[in-house]
Amino acid sequence: MSRWLPRTYLTLIYLLLYVPILVLVVFSFNDSRTGYEWGGLSLRWYEALFNNRAMVQAMWNSLWLALSAATVSTIIGALTALALHRYRFRGKKVLNGMLFIVMMSPEIVLAISLLALFLLVGLQLGYVSLLLAHVTFCLPFVVITVMARLSGFDERLPEAARDLGASDFTMTRTVLIPVIMPALLAGWLLGFTLSLDDVVVSTFVSGPSYEILPLRIYSMVRVGLKPEVNALGTLLLVFSLVMLMLSQWILLRSKR
């Protein structure tokens, strides 16, 4: 019983999570424009999508931005969490407070205040400004996730490492990082997801040189949600699943 109950529960929740996605996939093959009735099978939305070069470019831009933002925010976020957890220094409360403020600030406030800052220091809007902004709003999510993991951590391990003569850096690398790995993974995923999804902040801190996908999708709804968006969602899903399987395959091979 203790085996099938969790499994049934997991399956149920996964089903619920995937139902809306399945709807999206099915409707991406729907010939009808409106979406509430079935107009026959068609690939026209995929064709329309591929002919939209700007959209495809925006998709790549988005993926690249999300990858880099998630990675940078995981590194900085993990270091922040480690510093908060291990080091004594002045202003810990201030640091915590700042992270809280980032989480709490309505996106529009974050967006306009960051834009004002970038203009103040004369930063050209584009990839760099987007990266700085995305890393900033992903940061607290990583820190909180890693902190939760660290708080349950046995303090004697790093002490032991240090007694054995390991430097702070070595100890972090060999003892702490492996311990917080699940939290790093979780934090990276949160960051990637947030970055891929952000509309409001990006609207303000992006420039014409670097248009990203959510902006296009968001403004698309003004003239009615086109079924092209369903096709796009399906492609993103397939892409993610392929990446996922690829990584699993590599993992299995390397273990062998």
Binding site: A54, I112, L115, A116, L119, G122, Q124, L125, T203, F204, S206, G207, P208, S209, E211, L215, R216, Y218, S219, M220, V221, R222
Partner: peptide
């Protein structure tokens, strides 16, 4: 042509106004 989009007059206006000199549209 580089096509960049907005979703409301308000957002377009706020951006053009804020960016001013550095606006590249």
């Amino acid at each position: 042509v580089v096509y960049t989009t907005y979703d409301s007059n308000e957002a377009m206006y706020a951006r053009l106004k804020l960016l001013d000199e550095s606006a590249a549209y």
